[in-house]
Nucleic acid binder design. Structure first.
Length: 310
DNA sequence: CTGTATGATTTCGC
DNA sequence: GCGAAATCATACAG
C-alpha cells in the first residue's frame, strides 16, 4: 500500500507543481553565457593556463585587431593586471563550484532524509539539483560578466591607450637624432638599422618608423627651427668621428656627397639664427628626400644585402 | 589655462 | 607596404 501511494503522489507532483518556469529562463541565458565564455577564453582569462597566457592573449588581440603590433614593454603591466583578474576569476569560480557541490549534497541529504517521511522521487531530486545548479551558474555568469567588464576596462586603458603618448627617454631621442642628422642626406634607415635603433632606444621598430616619419616631415617643414639641433648633432658625430679617426671605414659613407665634417668649432658659437642660411648645407641640399615625394627607394648603395623575406 | 612639442594614427598616392 | 602629409591626443612648460 505504501509504495503505491508513494508513486501516485510522485506522479501528481511531477504533473503539477514542479513544472515551473525553468526551461525558458535557461535558454535565454545560454547564448549570453556562451558569449561571455568565448570572450573570456579569447582573452586568456578562462581556459587552461598557458605558458604566458596573458601575453599570448594580448598579442592575439593586438594582431587580430590590426592595431599597432608593437608595445611589449607596456604589456608587462597589462599582463600582470590580466593575470590578477584571471586569478581572481579562477578562485571565485572554484569557490562557487565548491559551494555548489556542497550545497547540492547537502540538499540531497536533506531530501533523502525527508524521503523517509515524505514522498520524494528521484526525479524531484534531479530537479532540485538542476535548480541549484542553475542558481549557482547564474551567479557564475555574473562573475563572468564582471570579469569581462574588468578585462575590457583594462584593455581600453592599456591597449587602446596607444594614443596616450609617453615621450621617449632622453637617451633614446639622442640616439635617434644622432642617426637622423648623420644621415640627413638620406634619413631612411634600413630595416636592419631600424631594428638596431629600436634596440638601442628600447622602443619598437614601428616606433622608430613613426619617429623618423615625424622627424622627416617636421624637419622639412621647418628646417630653420631644427638647424640648431642639426648643428649640435652634426658636431657630436664630428667629434665621435674625430675620436676614432683610425677606423678602417670612412664614417661619412652616406653616399651622395655627405657633408665633410669640417671643424666642429666652426659652429660652436652659432646663435639660434632666424635666417635661412643653412649652417649645414650639403647634407640636406643634395638629399632629394625633401623635394620629391618619391622616397629614395634606391637607398644607399652597398648596404642592401639583407634578405627581404616578407 | 594656453601654446608648443611630440608620439601615434589616419589618409592618400605610389 | 612604404612614406608624406594631415590630424589627433597627450605631455609638458610657461
Amino acid at each position: 500500500m505504501k509504495p503505491a501511494l508513494f508513486s501516485v503522489l510522485c506522479e501528481i507532483k511531477e504533473k503539477t507543481g514542479l513544472s515551473m518556469r525553468n526551461a525558458q529562463e535557461e535558454e535565454s541565458q545560454d547564448p549570453q553565457l556562451v558569449r561571455l565564455d568565448n570572450m573570456l577564453l579569447a582573452e586568456g582569462v578562462a581556459g587552461p593556463e598557458k605558458g604566458g597566457g596573458a601575453a599570448a592573449a594580448v598579442s592575439a588581440a593586438t594582431s587580430s585587431g590590426g592595431m599597432s603590433p608593437d608595445s611589449s614593454l607596456e604589456h608587462s603591466d597589462y599582463k600582470s593586471k590580466l593575470s590578477q583578474i584571471r586569478n581572481i576569476y579562477h578562485t571565485e569560480m572554484e569557490k562557487y563550484d565548491q559551494a555548489c557541490s556542497e550545497f547540492t549534497t547537502h540538499v540531497m541529504n536533506l531530501l533523502r532524509e525527508q524521503s523517509r517521511t515524505r514522498p520524494v522521487s528521484p526525479r524531484e531530486i534531479e530537479r532540485m539539483v538542476a535548480i541549484i545548479h542553475r542558481k549557482f551558474s547564474s551567479i557564475q555568469t555574473q562573475l563572468k560578466q564582471s570579469t569581462c567588464e574588468a578585462v575590457m576596462i583594462l584593455r581600453s586603458r592599456f591597449l587602446d591607450a596607444r594614443r596616450k603618448r609617453r615621450n621617449f627617454s632622453k637617451q633614446a631621442t639622442e640616439v635617434l637624432n644622432e642617426y637622423f642628422y648623420s644621415h640627413l642626406a638620406n634619413p631612411y634607415p634600413s630595416e636592419e638599422a631600424k631594428e638596431e635603433l629600436a634596440k638601442q632606444c628600447s622602443i619598437t621598430v614601428s616606433q622608430v618608423c613613426n619617429w623618423f616619419g615625424n622627424k622627416r616631415i617636421r624637419y622639412k617643414k621647418n628646417i630653420g627651427k631644427f638647424q640648431e639641433e642639426a648643428n649640435i648633432y652634426a658636431m657630436k658625430t664630428a667629434i665621435v668621428a674625430t675620436q676614432n679617426e683610425d677606423s678602417p671605414h670612412t664614417p661619412n659613407s652616406t653616399g651622395s656627397g655627405g657633408f665633410s665634417l669640417t671643424g666642429p668649432d666652426l659652429f660652436l658659437g652659432v646663435p639660434p639664427m632666424n635666417g635661412e642660411q643653412p649652417v649645414f648645407m650639403g647634407a640636406q641640399t643634395n638629399g632629394n628626400w625633401q623635394g620629391q615625394n618619391t622616397p629614395p627607394s634606391a637607398t644607399s648603395p652597398g648596404n642592401d644585402h639583407s634578405g627581404d623575406s616578407d
